[in-house]
């Protein structure tokens, strides 16, 4: 694949997080490294299984890495933080534990063996190395927007898969600055949003959202930027239980906006519960 990047979407990017997929595809196209979806892929399982004896739950991510291998590729990029975390950890387990890999391959049975030669990346790791290209692509700097970055858990923990410093990450701050936005320091940016508790304990998530969004508002943020579809859902949807109405953007939506792309119409921003339009109109980014 010459300039393109082999892309693993994960289930949510095809439905609730389609704004993320659309905006990321548009942004990467603009930056000359288009995302090319894998021919075949499987649900990663969203959360890493932590039991030493549990190989079964490692099979799904390994199967996906096998698909990349069979396509003749050695790198896979994800947008979703949870997919990223699971793929990278399962891959690490397979690469570092010969016995585990053997068990996995025996289980894969009639399918080809995984040889352990595929590397997994999060989109932010790719963007981090494209600072010049990003700077050049900015047509409409976001200098009227105050953005609080939010990392959540899966990009930073555990340390062996972290894409940045686990306690003091800068990757999003750097990118937001390239886009011209005013970065709001956010001490809550690495605290968990409540994750899957949204399914049956939304009370827990609501308290997390109150805390995280509340602090961003207190510090003067107009909006929050992130990349995990579950964090986006929780911080956006569960604001309904709070007094806040703060738009929660995927970072790629803000990039698309800064690149002058047709954001909100053709790409992105269609599934937000807290409508970002009012803010963007007020700041003159939308008619």
């Amino acid at each position: 694949m010459e300039d393109g990047l082999l892309y693993y979407p994960g289930c949510t990017l095809k439905t609730k997080a389609s704004d993320y997929e659309e905006s990321a595809k548009a942004v990467m196209e603009k930056l000359g490294r288009p995302l090319v979806e894998m021919d075949d892929w499987y649900c990663c399982g969203a959360v890493q299984s932590l039991s030493t004896d549990d190989i079964m739950h490692q099979i799904a991510p390994i199967r996906t890495l096998c698909c990349a291998q069979e396509q003749g590729e050695t790198e896979v990029v994800t947008l979703c933080d949870m997919c990223f975390n699971v793929l990278r950890r399962a891959n690490t387990r397979a690469k570092e534990n010969e016995d585990d890999l053997e068990t996995m391959n025996e289980f894969l049975d009639e399918d080809p063996d995984y040889e352990g030669n595929v590397e997994t990346y999060h989109l932010f790791e790719i963007l981090r190395d494209m600072k010049d290209e990003i700077e050049k692509a900015v047509k409409r700097p976001l200098d009227d927007l105050k953005i609080a970055p939010y990392y959540g858990c899966m990009l930073l923990r555990p340390s062996e898969v972290a894409i940045d410093d686990t306690e003091d990450p800068q990757i999003m701050e750097d990118m937001l600055e390239l886009l011209g936005a005013e970065v709001i320091e956010n001490p809550k940016r690495t605290e968990c949003c409540g994750s899957y508790h949204t399914v049956n304990r939304s009370d827990i998530v609501e308290k997390r959202v109150e805390d995280i969004v509340g602090r961003a508002v207190e510090d003067g943020a107009d909006a929050i930027a992130l990349s995990c579809p579950l964090c986006q859902f929780n911080l956006d949807y569960h604001q309904r239980a709070t007094e806040f109405e703060v738009p929660v953007f995927y970072l790629t939506e803000l990039m698309a906006l800064a690149f002058g792309l047709d954001i909100g119409k053709e790409i992105g921003m269609k599934k937000h519960r807290v409508e970002p339009n009012a803010l963007l109109k007020e700041k003159g980014y939308m008619e």
Partner: peptide
């Protein structure tokens, strides 16, 4: 996702084949 709505257990698939 109407299928997930009626058959939520599809979320338990481990791709074991």
């Amino acid at each position: 996702n109407v299928l997930l709505d009626y058959y939520p257990e599809i979320a338990r698939c481990v791709s074991c084949n």
